[in-house]
């Protein structure tokens, strides 16, 4: 490695990224440093964006939270539990207190691992990603951001600047499955959002395909089947079908953390539960 660049602000970060397109961005370091410590990766240079003020702030614009890509999860849990309950819930399942103090949504997006816990809530909530470069800023729907494991639409000269997330219009849930009761990489995860004004359901799944995926058929099905006005209890047939459709949206693999069959099964169970919990919350609200 030949360089370590520290960005003072977003403009500077974009300049540095344009000048060093092969540099690896580092903020919380919770992915990048593991690769370095184990000698598994050898990036040409590091570009530190952990002090870029624009990335470390969030604000509210009408019904949207503009979340700087470098806001650590601890702050999301502490400050955004009301506006973004799904994301906040997911954030709380991530790593340990020490990890949450450093790790960021921008890191999850940049790493583009299907197991990034913050990602399904972003997809479910139909967030969009703001990418900045010297060429300007563009917005990409979170649902279109990922191309494959470790791959996204992020260009070499671009930086994930922020995520624009609709303020929850209804109940939001997130659940994951791991082989331990804390500090686990998800074997499967599911995020569900209810948007009663639009009669719309969001559902996305992590760790069960090459990228986090949207369970579109499950969303359409539930959006149509839920009794938005009567708020009647969910029939078991609806949750069962929703679960089936969520599982059908996945393309899991066998690996050291779990088999494909189990992941699919877990997605179905988690989808059923998260929809049920969200619906119960909606009925109470």
């Amino acid at each position: 490695m030949t360089g370590f660049h520290t960005a003072a602000d977003l403009r500077h970060a974009c300049e540095l990224k344009a000048a060093h397109p092969d540099a690896t961005l580092i903020a919380g370091g919770t992915d990048v440093m593991v690769g370095l410590n184990f000698g598994h990766t050898s990036p040409a240079a590091l570009l530190d964006v952990s002090r870029v003020p624009e990335l470390r702030e969030w604000s509210r614009e009408d019904d949207t939270i503009v979340l700087g890509a470098g806001v650590p999860y601890t702050r999301i849990v502490d400050e955004l539990g009301g506006a973004l309950p799904g994301l906040a819930r997911a954030a709380r399942t991530i790593g340990s207190a020490q990890i949450r103090n450093r790790a960021t949504v921008g890191g999850n997006l940049g790493t583009a691992s299907p197991a990034g816990d913050a990602l399904p809530p972003l997809l479910a909530a139909r967030a969009s990603i703001e990418l900045a470069s010297l060429r300007g800023t563009r917005r990409v729907p979170a649902r279109d951001f990922f191309l494959g494991p470790g791959r996204s639409v992020l260009a070499d000269d671009e930086i994930v600047a922020a995520v624009r997330i609709p303020v929850a219009a209804g109940a939001e849930q997130f659940a994951k499955l791991g082989p331990r009761n804390a500090m686990v990489i998800a074997v499967a995860s599911v995020a569900v959002t209810l948007d009663p004004p639009r009669r719309r359901v969001g559902c996305a799944v992590g760790s069960a395909a090459p990228t986090p995926v949207v369970a579109g058929d499950a969303e359409t099905f539930a959006g149509a089947e839920l009794d938005w006005d009567g708020r009647r209890e969910l029939p078991a047939s609806v949750t069962a079908r929703f679960a089936e459709l969520a599982a059908a949206a996945t393309a899991p693999i066998d690996d050291v953390r779990g088999t494909a069959g189990y992941r699919r099964h877990a997605v179905a169970v988690l989808a059923r539960r998260t929809l049920t919990w969200a619906w119960q919350e909606y009925r109470r609200s």
Partner: peptide
């Protein structure tokens, strides 16, 4: 967590902070 330190009043794993940061 064996390397937990305070970095500007925040508890972090020192192994995951690049020295330059």
């Amino acid at each position: 967590g064996s390397c937990t330190v305070y970095l500007d009043e925040t508890a972090v794993c020192a192994c995951l902070v690049a020295a330059g940061q």
